[in-house]
Design a protein around this nucleic acid. Structure first.
Length: 277
DNA sequence: AACGGGTGCAACCGCAAACGA
DNA sequence: TTCGTTTGCGGTTGCACCCGT
């Protein structure tokens, strides 16, 4: 199928793979004049490409800090977890993987990881996974990732419908505060239970239905989030903020790093953008 | 060697949000 | 506030390459 031309002066534009000459031209221009104003950049640099195409080429291929080479098992593991948390929010996921682009992660997921995860789930189904068995008692999260050394935290025994009700994530504001994302879970009307930030903006679908044990397993495995989580167990709603897991965790040596360690630099944490507040 | 199906990935498309005059 | 432009995002496409027959 022939692709429909879409850019400005569409029929005068080059399309398809970029030549080495075009790459060189774009690279030189961006190094001198910087990124942005892509349409203008394209004209000024003398590239017969639309602005959009220039931007994409730069961001996905030419930008100097792009990491080349295979995705490591650590990166793969992180992608799987983040995808479980965020869904197809490729740019958010890429934001937690320095040097990787959203396009690369999306392609990697679609061509390889999705099948791998589906295969793993199918295997779990075959051996008769019982969803009522607390997964943390077997030191596995729901992705089947083994937890090699740490015994389960007392609060991480998972009731069947335990939900994440409050999460504090590193903020993206300039004063290094934590954004409080909250939701109250109405068991009679689950669809009305949307996570909200302190401006009462909904974060539909971000935390709702998210399995708290996966979130916490991610925390304690590698401390990639500097966040706090509150949980609600049906029939026992913890109104008191003192039940924040971080407070109870830090009393135990196993979890002492949970709150303080940061896998990413502060700068990267600040850059983390959670869906449109 | 030729062919055809499968795979990986760069590039494109359409839409929406953000921006700025 | 409005409206045109720019930027960013996620889904999709098409082509080159690989591999088995």
């Amino acid at each position: 199928m022939e692709r429909k031309a879409n850019c400005e002066n569409e029929y005068a534009m080059n399309r398809g793979p970029w030549s080495a000459e075009e790459d060189k031209t774009l690279m030189n221009y961006v190094q001198v004049h910087g990124e942005g104003k892509w349409r203008e950049l394209s004209k000024r640099a003398g590239l017969k490409r639309c602005g959009k195409s220039c931007r994409l080429r730069w961001l996905n291929y030419l930008k100097p800090d792009i990491k080349r080479g295979n995705i490591s098992s650590d990166e793969e593991d992180l992608i799987i977890r983040l995808h479980k948390l965020l869904g197809n929010r490729w740019s958010l996921i890429a934001g937690r993987l320095p040097g990787r682009t959203d396009n690369e992660i999306k392609n990697y997921w679609n061509t390889y990881l999705r099948k791998k995860v589906e295969h793993k789930h199918n295997q779990n189904d075959v051996v008769g996974h019982d969803s009522n068995i607390p997964i943390n008692l077997s030191s596995k999260n729901s992705l089947g990732i083994l937890h090699p050394t740490k015994p389960p935290h007392p609060l991480m025994i998972k009731p069947k419908s335990m939900r994440c009700t409050k999460v504090m994530m590193p903020g993206n504001d300039s004063v290094n505060t934590m954004n409080l994302l909250t939701t109250t879970w109405d068991h009679n009307n689950p669809s009305a239970s949307m996570p909200q930030d302190h401006h009462n903006h909904c974060l539909t679908g971000v935390l709702q239905d998210f399995d708290i044990s996966d979130l916490l397993m991610s925390y304690e495995d590698d401390c990639r989030f500097n966040g706090y989580a509150c949980v609600e167990i049906p029939g026992h709603i913890f109104e008191d903020e003192s039940w924040r897991l971080d407070d109870s965790m830090v009393e135990e040596a196993w979890y002492e790093n949970w709150k303080h360690d940061s896998y990413f630099s502060q700068e990267q944490n600040m850059a983390m953008s959670f869906p449109s507040f």
